[in-house]
Write a protein that binds this DNA or RNA. Structure first.
Lengths: 349, 349
DNA sequence: TTGAAAGCGCTAACAT
DNA sequence: ATGTTAGCGCTTTCAA
């Protein structure tokens, strides 16, 4: 078919049909025997056009495999239909689910996302930013573990809209973050509804905003004097915390709400070391739903999922709206977490 | 400064200096009082040009914050200076380090990478591919856990160069993959050099090419009759395997080389359950250097790192060369793994 | 209903 | 050494 087509085209010396070359709208017009503008109108359903002509043009376009050049369109529309995602995540556990959400939303609108992993290097971030600006990206999504690890200068004064995802941006920007408080409450409610009473919270460093928010959510339901043990975001700390909890007198806790799955893993291991059955004698609940951890604990871990994919979708929708010039109310939007029930919380009578 | 500049410009009604609008080369030319082509030549160091004029133009360009439009350049050069990364990884543990390597290499050449996380959905992959082609990407990098999870049709017959990373592509393409055999030998050599003799290999499913290659490397050094236990890529299987090993008669193994860090974690835990000291009584070595696992085992895990960042760099260099039209010898390039020494292998006397 | 022409921002012959 | 012009692939007035 290709060949047949190639021969029937008059070779004007310009649009000679070299086999593997992109077809342009000129080719379409030439083959369909119409002008370029008619071809354009036919393909885009703009202007008034004879139905037959339109069909013919479209048929030709399909036959010769015409795909409009997004580059040419961008030059004209001054919209590149691409955005940049700047991330300082090196692991991917955060960025990839989020980027997948973003990309899926954008895809439906013909927008693509440049990934810029800055590896926490401000110089690199700056270079990526410049490259993105040169590429005329329509917008930017900042994402990363902690905002304070982003050099503040590069965030400011951008000529294009910016959305923050996962970590909070400045108040005049749009940010989507997991609702840590709500996630914590979800965890506690789950435990309480299953009959667990004396609940303690073992979490990471208190200088993390997320840790403080989760602790706040925890205290809301358990009581303002409820016990929160801050430490590291590590298994080891989970271990240690259990040691602390067991070393002291008084009634023992019935459930431990952990600030991360890794901490929870340490807690579960430490409990097993002590012969404490989970969930029969102690419930444990985590935070992150980091599957490689949560699915492999014994028993598998009930935990809070931050719904990063949805977070990404929201961020994608927001940046789309902003690039279209629509107004989006600035502020920090906290998106609900969900609970993934596995086996580490039972029912306490 | 900006303001000063704005006022001193004659307003010809066309390039009126709206504060936050991109400056074009026309603006530069106008302010510098030269023609557009002179401005272009001055900025790009092309053609013959008076040194003073050049400096003046450059100064003006910098002052008004001119950045050449990559879109316009692309239209002309028919190179978009962007590539696509198609991945089916949903976790990011694989894709992000790899994409970071790719992007860093590309960055120096003004090329950016579109990330397309297909989530193993062939329909999505197809849509992403079309979007990328429309955006005139200069090349494509395919990456993912297993090639057979990519729908083969979308891989074939692309009008632009393709490089495969992590998983092997067809023989006529360029692929970069970790050298699983060498990695396995590295692990075994490490054990042997430290005096460990009876070594067994506990790994994942034998229908994974990587599992078979690692087993081959293992057998090369330990002996063709050396014991390989295939199972799942899970902690649980690591546990089970230890049970198997201990249940049978005969001299006990001195070291266990695991096909993944997760398996190794299961092995280490099972050994601790049995009171076997690692590394005093048994050495354990993993594969992946997945830090969240390897750093958190007790003791921390010595393991093989696949150097995904370097893999990404190589893939980036290859796709750059290909997009420039340079020839790159097709085939599967196996890149060396490295060993990360932690505490799970001691010295056996 | 269709076509001719201008122009998006830039580069590269070709004139001057 | 500098300016004029054409044109990359497309959309969009404006004429015909």
């Amino acid at each position: 078919m290709m060949k047949g087509f190639c021969t029937q085209v008059e070779d004007d010396g310009k649009s000679s049909f070299v086999p593997n070359q992109r077809r342009t709208i000129r080719d379409v017009a030439a083959v369909a025997g119409v002008s370029i503008s008619t071809a354009s109108n036919a393909l885009n359903d703009t202007g008034r056009i004879n139905a037959k002509t339109r069909e013919r043009v479209r048929l030709v376009a399909k036959e010769i495999g015409f795909r409009p050049s997004a580059v040419a369109r961008s030059l004209l529309s001054r919209r590149s239909h691409s955005i940049g995602i700047l991330t300082n995540d090196t692991y991917g556990r955060l960025t990839l689910p989020l980027a997948a959400g973003v990309s899926e939303v954008l895809l439906d609108h013909g927008v693509s996302a440049f990934l810029c992993p800055t590896s926490n290097d401000p110089r690199l971030a700056q270079l990526y930013l410049e490259a993105l600006l040169d590429k005329q990206v329509d917008g930017l999504i900042f994402t990363g573990t902690r905002l304070d690890l982003q050099p503040p200068e590069i965030l400011a004064d951008l000529p294009i809209p910016v959305v923050h995802a996962f970590s909070e941006g400045p108040p005049d920007r749009v940010s989507f973050v997991p609702d840590d408080e709500q996630g914590a409450r979800l965890a506690v409610e789950h435990l309480q509804s299953r009959g667990y009473r004396r609940i303690v919270h073992v979490t990471g460093q208190s200088n993390y905003l997320a840790a403080r928010r989760r602790a706040d959510g925890f205290r809301t339901l358990v009581g303002s004097d409820a016990e929160v043990l801050f430490g590291d975001w590590t298994e080891e700390w989970g271990h240690e915390a259990v040691g602390l909890l067991f070393a002291r007198p008084g009634p023992r806790a019935q459930a431990i709400f952990c600030g991360s799955d890794e901490i929870a893993r340490g807690v579960i291991d430490a409990l097993r070391d002590r012969g404490v059955d989970v969930p029969a004698n102690m419930a444990v609940i985590g935070f992150d739903n980091w599957e490689v951890v949560a699915r492999q604990t014994r028993p598998p871990l009930t935990t809070i999922d931050m719904e990063l994919n949805i977070l990404g979708r929201k961020a994608g929708e927001a940046i789309l709206a902003l690039t279209r010039g629509d107004h989006v109310r600035p502020g920090v939007f906290r998106l609900p977490c969900s609970l993934v029930s596995r086996a580490s919380c039972g029912i306490r009578m």
